[in-house]
Design a protein around this nucleic acid. Structure first.
Lengths: 109, 109
DNA sequence: ACAGGTATTTGACAGATGTCTAATACCTCG
DNA sequence: CGAGGTATTAGACATCTGTCAAATACCTGT
């Protein structure tokens, strides 16, 4: 018998290849335990912000490593930074998470 | 001047370290363009299911590679599989995406 | 039982990722 | 300006991830 498997399929109407890469990039920015804890902790603060030197002991990693994680979050629009004096304060960008979950639901629900 | 930086911080009340790892794992399962397209395509089907041999040409990857991605999705509860005859059919687990976005919102909103 | 189609596992490999230390940059206060 | 605290960058390294080809397993019809 010859092969009987499915005919050549067309891509989903929900999600183009380009959109898939863009959404995957944003999800990757969140898909790390350290970064989730950083975001979560910043949101917990009264002020809505936290500086690097406060975050490093929190997650028990070196400051350069935390700086690296914050950079990745910032590059994907999840946090913003502001220098005030010696410190750099990070805030969670409002709606950033909401936009990601909305895009995910559009693609996968 | 002595150091003036933040006092020892306590972890977020929103997200324990263990929960952060668990959520990160599920997000990682979704945070790949190929896997997003697979899920999206399966949901697009009338039948709600698709087999490996149909998915491989769709994303232009080899069957072993697609099988690997499907395994990762299954391991994280995002899809289920069922063998029927020669083929294995994959379905998206209902609410799986919703649970992830809910956990994410709980941690980060 | 065997032939042929479908699926997964295994093993190998390149590239991405997370972490650290050391070096550099940034900022404030004597 | 110089000392000292804070932050980031650069470079190195181990691990994880995505991919493929080859081998194996699974299933059906003859």
């Amino acid at each position: 018998m010859s092969q009987s498997c499915a005919p050549p399929a067309s891509l989903s109407t929900r999600l183009s290849a380009i959109d898939a890469v863009a959404l995957a990039d944003r999800l990757k920015a969140l898909a790390d335990p350290v970064r989730l804890q950083l975001v979560s902790y910043i949101l917990d603060q009264e002020s809505g912000e936290a500086c690097t030197c406060e975050l490093a002991p929190l997650v028990e990693l070196s400051e350069p490593t935390v700086s690296h994680h914050l950079k990745k979050l910032e590059a994907n629009g999840l946090v913003s930074k502001e220098r005030r004096g010696m410190n750099v304060y990070y805030r969670v960008v409002p709606q950033a998470i909401g936009e990601i979950t909305a895009a995910l639901n559009a693609a996968c629900c």
